[in-house]
Design a protein around this nucleic acid. Structure first.
Length: 473
RNA sequence: GGGACCAUAGGGUAGCUUGGUCGAUCCUUUGGGCUUUGGGAGCCUGAGACUCCGGUUCAAAUCCGGGUGGUCCCA
């Protein structure tokens, strides 16, 4: 995959995920196939969130004065807000912003909803589209002007401790979610100059795409009391005192879908984890003039059997050569293919072909083959996940001289280094290398190096953290 | 904010410099028919494009101006 950009662009079109020819820059159409993938991904996500979050839906438009209330926050977004200025021909006396994110839409309402400590914690989420007027060059699913799939969760707590705990909980939810999709991730604490506008601190997940650039796929922000103070969100404690709340918010976007496609795909096309594949198994009857009815009847029988067991089956009956179907379904990422022809029918067997490694497996149709297929799905998923994790881990390279950064990056890899953690030093490093610092690793992170007694790679002061640097999307 | 480049069927392209040979090339896609089907079949017969507006000219895909859309670089 020498040119990831081109591969990605082609696969979106060939596998009919989205059509990026919509005549507005940075906006695309979800096609049925892509929409199904999206739907299955969202189902997994909702299942995780619904355990202790409530799903809500806020309006798309935010009044100008609300958006402007939180100064730092607005600064972070003002260059990319779309505005609604007219109703018909009449100019509105109050401009309306199309949400770039929903803090300022939600928090005025939170202020009304939060009364007492018994109302807390509150945990909401919504899955909506948001709009950002990107000025850099856009890229389908990765840098877009309409984020069509923006999952944002917003929580409200009575204490600083609980908010910090919620950050950890959200991180665990996201880890579980990315694991379900088999997406490898690096969790970092973003440098202070790169945190979410208005947040106390930002934790972020990045994945590594095949071209060596990292893609931010999820963020978790501890908002502290900043927004609570701006939007006057207070609660009455057990002692009847009015206190400002502590908040967190965390988000995911279309980029998760881009990652699934990008990290698993190969030169033949998509490789989808069975859980989210629109067609988990594709049955291809091998038809000859003689005996075609029996073959098709048997395939129908298998299809029904699989469907009653909750498996998403597709049977490709088209009158074209089987080879063409093989290529097409490999392109579309169907995790398993079942071939059945007259030869197999005689033996009451069928051939299964795995999409992940193209291995062929003969199954006996007299046996409990549904179980076998479910096992294979699990096996395919585990194998895919293992492969992408290993690939990513191999690309994280520890260096002890700043001069080596650009070589490592040029090889499509991520740099790991020891750092004092200070803003001035970090910005200098970014300036010198022209590479972004993703952030710092937690001590428990598998990517953490032991900094004890060592020096910062740039300023030579005591090293406090493991930092990571990468070319980013 | 400044600049460069690009626009030909659903996708990818040739033609443009030097206007006429263009009734526009090739690959892919696609309708119908026959034949075929264990890794992208073949044959027959159809379908499908010069971004838009204006100008120059006997004549414009080709030259000029503008609009729109896209790509990229620099701040």
């Amino acid at each position: 995959m020498e040119n990831f950009s081109e591969w990605f662009h082609n696969i979106l079109e060939e596998a009919e995920i989205i059509d990026s020819r919509y005549p507005i820059k940075g906006m695309s159409v979800w096609l049925p196939n892509g929409f199904k993938i999206r739907k299955h991904i969202l189902e997994l996500l909702k299942k995780l969130l619904d355990k202790d979050h409530e799903e809500v839906l806020f309006p798309l438009l935010v009044p100008e004065d609300e958006l402007a209330k939180e100064g730092i926050h607005v600064k972070g977004f003002e260059e990319e807000v779309y505005w609604v200025t007219h109703g018909g021909r009449k100019e509105l006396n109050k401009k309306l912003a199309i949400r770039p994110t929903s803090e300022t839409a939600m928090y005025p309402m939170f202020s009304l909803w939060v009364r007492s400590h018994t109302d807390l914690p509150m945990k909401f989420y919504q899955i909506v589209n948001t709009f950002r007027y990107e000025t850099k060059h856009t890229r389908p699913l990765i840098r877009v002007r309409e984020i069509t799939t923006f999952k944002e969760a917003h929580t409200v707590h009575g204490t600083s401790y609980e908010a910090a705990e919620q950050v950890k909980i959200a991180i665990e939810i996201y880890k579980e979610f990315f694991d379900l999709l088999g997406i490898p991730y690096i969790l970092s604490k973003r440098p202070v100059w790169d945190k979410f506008p208005g947040a106390d601190y930002t934790m972020a997940f990045d994945t590594l795409l095949p071209d060596g650039k990292t893609l931010q796929i999820g963020t978790v922000h501890n908002l502290g009391q900043t927004f609570a103070k701006t939007f006057d969100i207070r609660y009455e404690t057990e002692d009847s005192i009015h206190e400002y709340v502590y908040q967190t918010c965390y988000g995911l976007s279309d980029r998760v879908i881009a990652s699934v496609i990008g990290v698993h795909g190969d030169k033949k096309g998509l490789r989808l984890p069975p859980k989210i594949a629109p067609n988990q198994i594709t049955i291809i009857p091998i038809i000859f003039k003689e005996g075609s009815e029996e073959v098709i009847a048997k395939c129908e029988e298998i299809k029904l059997d699989l469907e009653t067991n909750g498996i998403r089956v597709n049977m490709d009956n088209r009158d074209i050569r089987p080879g063409k179907k093989f290529y097409q379904w490999e392109l579309n990422g169907s995790p398993l293919r079942l071939e059945l022809g007259p030869r197999d029918l005689k033996k009451n067997k069928a051939i299964l072909v795995r999409r992940d490694n193209l291995e062929k497996i003969e199954i006996d149709l007299n046996s409990k083959y549904v179980e076998k297929i479910n096992e294979l799905f699990e096996n395919i998923y585990n194998n895919m996940k293992k492969n992408v994790w290993e690939k990513m881990e191999d690309k994280i390279i520890a260096i002890d001289n700043l001069k080596d950064v650009n070589d490592v990056i040029a090889n499509g890899k991520v740099v790991s280094f020891l750092w004092c953690g200070e803003e001035e030093c970090g910005k200098a490093i970014e300036e010198i290398t022209d590479i972004d610092i993703l952030g710092t690793q937690d001590e428990k992170s598998e990517f953490n190096q032991d900094a004890d007694g060592k020096e910062c790679i740039h300023c030579g002061k005591k090293a406090e953290y493991t930092g990571l640097m990468a070319k980013t999307y």
